[in-house]
Design a binder for these strands. Structure first.
Lengths: 281, 281
DNA sequence: TATGGATTGGAATTATTATTTCATATTGCC
DNA sequence: GGCAATATGAAATAATAATTCCAATCCATA
């Protein structure tokens, strides 16, 4: 038997959803029940679960076997594991991760360190976001004809995700990068009717700061994501956000910045959609 | 029997702590174990729990009876109920956040949604990383002359951060992208002495899959980060990681993928440094 | 509408697990 | 130190639960 048996709940869930169409009626019935009442599967007995789902115990076992398990019992283990995982509280786990990462035990510790850094950053920002700034930034970006996205080096991944998302949302945007060295010309097209999202953290990439300066002098409003009020980026920005990203092994987590960037993007998309609908009515 | 039987975990806990002093040795032993490992009580069998706690099953039953339950089974129910409770509150919180965002309750909810998605993903991966795969991937990448990084569209931000980090660590690498449309030629240079980090999530960008196929046919080992065992990327990979990223408003969080990618990168850097030092001595 | 294969229901069987029992050990008390 | 009360260990037993098996039914196809 080399069939791939889902050993975690998420995989199991997706496997079930994938096969949903091709399952026989009763099996499908128990499959739906399982996804709707995972706790019951975790705690119940084959007989009690079967009764609640309105099938025979044997059907429940056939369901498990069809998924590659060798019986109901092994299927149930996955549902139990899920409860165990979810149970331990967020803070406890984070503390444990940090401790392990700090005592420096091998490669696993490196991984834990990055996870801890990302979690910390998210924790931090979720309590710190300035809602007024957030609304201002959304308003500003919603009005823009073209949204320019500016970030270099370590912040560049965020910029590329913003550009991807804006594209998906059909919002005109321009990532300021050019393999041909035409950045300056690209910036030249920006006008006060456009807007910029600029991202830079210490040590600030000189190119990013310089381009932000030029573009703000053209009267283009800038929304900045940066790490402190002393940031050179802040002085050019109409609205700016302070994001404190934890780092690990010299590399900064991008999770908080990503979350903020995506929230801005989606909020702008939503606000434009609403405005469009209103205009039509 | 009108003895007061604790029917919720908190009451039970306090009852146990109250009586701790007056309990016989073995009973006290199982009592301590129960409070320290409530999950084990919830899921284990009388025999398995007794063994872990270093007592006889009969002792476990006597413990339950002393607390007023009529047997181990009814004691166990309290521990199971506790897991149910905790878990549902967790789900409720997350569902509430999503619901708020989906019913359009302000922009703040969108932000919270992204933070929640990122946290969930991190939580998820931290318990699920396969350490053997992780070590294999590190070993494989450490040996490589050049590390090629392959990812398109929504996964591209991760690739660009990997490339940045590898550069910082002075590890030769090549991001597979070309404004001049020379991807195929770029791939052509890769040899079996190199390695690839490939990242792709459903719906898999055709270009990424195609390039992974070509490069694997050249005998270049691939480390893949993807979302399920059904991923077309998995079949080309020497080592692959399954990362389940939560999504929000149609955009997948990248936080877990980022953490894994950075951990791989830094671990490779560290392993190379160690190897270099050994060679010198 | 007849036929073969797949699916399902329900009881029989097997396995696992909780509980009880009883012999033995330990403890507190005179 | 001896005796009773209590606690413990280990195995037997009872209970419960999972699995298997086979007959009945359903469903697609010719």
């Amino acid at each position: 038997m080399d069939e791939r048996v889902p050993r975690d709940f998420e995989t199991l869930r997706r496997t079930i959803l994938d096969r949903r169409q091709s399952l026989p009626k009763r099996i499908a019935q128990i499959a739906a029940y399982a996804l709707d009442n995972p706790d019951d599967i975790a705690f119940g007995t084959a007989a009690s679960i079967a009764a609640s789902a309105g099938v025979q115990p044997s059907t429940l076992i056939r369901f498990a076997q069809q998924l590659g398990f060798d019986g109901f019992t092994s299927l149930q283990l996955v549902f139990r594991e899920r409860l165990r995982e979810r149970n331990s509280s967020y803070d406890e786990r984070l503390a444990a991760l940090r401790a392990k990462a700090e005592e420096g035990a091998g490669h696993r510790a490196i991984f834990d360190g990055f996870v801890a850094a990302a979690s910390t950053s998210l924790n931090d920002i979720s309590g710190r976001l300035n809602e007024d700034h957030f609304e201002d930034a959304i308003a500003l970006l919603t009005k823009a004809e073209t949204i320019y996205v500016l970030a270099k080096r370590r912040s560049y991944p965020v910029a590329s995700y913003i550009a991807y998302a804006l594209g998906k949302l059909k919002i005109r945007n321009q990532l300021i990068e050019s393999a041909a060295g035409l950045n300056a010309e690209m910036i030249g097209f920006a006008s006060p009717r456009d807007a910029v999202i600029a991202i830079s953290f210490s040590p600030y990439a000189p190119a990013a700061i310089e381009e932000a300066r030029v573009i703000s002098e053209q009267g283009v409003p800038i929304v900045a994501i940066t790490d402190s009020s002393f940031s050179p980026l802040a002085q050019f920005a109409k609205v700016w956000f302070e994001v404190a990203e934890a780092d690990f092994a010299g590399f900064r987590s991008l999770s908080a910045t990503m979350a903020l960037a995506m929230a801005l993007t989606v909020a702008v998309g939503e606000k434009r959609r609403d405005a469009g609908r209103k205009r039509k009515t």
